[in-house]
C-alpha cells in the first residue's frame, strides 16, 4: 500500500467513527482530539477499525503516534513495512 492508499483508508475509518466530519475538510496536521473533536470513545473506535483493517496490534503506548492524519500515515506505513 502506498502512503496515499493508507491515508485514504485512514480517513475512511475516521469518518466511519465520526460521521459528522467532512472527509474533504480534514487536514493532514489536524489534531484528532483538539481540532477534529474526537472524544476518547471515538478515538478508541478508530484504533479498533485500523486494527481490523491492517491487522496491527496498535498498543496504547503508540496512541500519540496517531495524533494527526500525517503522523498516523507515517506510523501505519512504518508498521506495515516492519
Amino acid at each position: 500500500m502506498t502512503p496515499a492508499d493508507i491515508r485514504t483508508a485512514f480517513v475512511d475509518d475516521l469518518v466511519m467513527v465520526a460521521p459528522d466530519l467532512d472527509p474533504g475538510a480534514i487536514g493532514d496536521h489536524d489534531h484528532l482530539q483538539e481540532d477534529l473533536g474526537l472524544d476518547s470513545m471515538d478515538f478508541l473506535n478508530l484504533v479498533a477499525a485500523l486494527h481490523k483493517r491492517f491487522g496491527l496490534p496498535i498498543p496504547e503506548a503508540d496512541y500519540p503516534r496517531l495524533a494527526t492524519p500525517s503522523k498516523a500515515v507515517a506510523y501505519l506505513t512504518e508498521m506495515l513495512a516492519a
Partner: peptide, 30 residues
Amino acid sequence: SPAARTRAAEAGLALAAVSGTGPQGAVLLG
C-alpha cells in the same frame, strides 16, 4: 447523522435518494 440531515435539507435533497455508508447503512455527511 444530524450533519447529513442538515446538509441534505439545505440542499433540498431527499435523504432516501442517498446511499449510506455509515453504521447500518446510515447516511453520513460524506
